[in-house]
């Protein structure tokens, strides 16, 4: 809580302040994930499962993005309204990607 003097006298603002300790912890986790994806990419994982190299790379990237959004961008501590905006944005992106990719996958457009 921070006390602030405004036009209408003193108002208190509740603001969640993320500690430097947590920021450094998140940074360390991001570095570990970067190292993991770097080395995983140089191993042929596709021999175990089709396109596993791509899946592993994208899953790790998504984990990193979620850590950045939740902690560096304070989404975890933001209001429900802000969270709703963030989630609906990604949901909309997912709709656009899946419908377009679905179209490409299900029709023979002969793009060659």
């Amino acid at each position: 809580m921070t006390a602030i003097s405004g036009f209408f006298g003193e108002v208190r603002v509740s603001e969640h302040i993320v500690s430097p300790k947590l920021y450094i912890l998140i940074f360390a986790a991001l570095m570990v994930l970067t190292g993991t994806t770097y080395f995983a990419a140089q191993v042929d994982l596709n021999q175990y499962f089709a396109a596993l190299n791509i899946i592993v790379a994208l899953v790790i990237a998504t984990c990193k993005a979620i850590l950045v959004i939740l902690f560096f961008m304070h989404a975890k501590y933001s209001s429900k309204r802000t969270k709703l905006i963030i989630i609906s944005g990604f949901f909309w992106l997912a709709i656009m990607l899946s419908l377009t990719l679905g179209d490409y996958a299900s029709r023979s457009w002969d793009v060659h």
Binding site: T37, A41, Q42, N53, A61, F72
Partner: peptide, 21 residues
């Protein structure tokens, strides 16, 4: 700034990583 970081987090695997093995 963090958003720009996230874009790179996806660009790096897609452009550099997925075809290395």
């Amino acid at each position: 700034w963090h958003f720009v970081d996230i874009v790179w987090i996806y660009l790096f695997p897609l452009l550099y990583l997925i075809d290395r093995h």
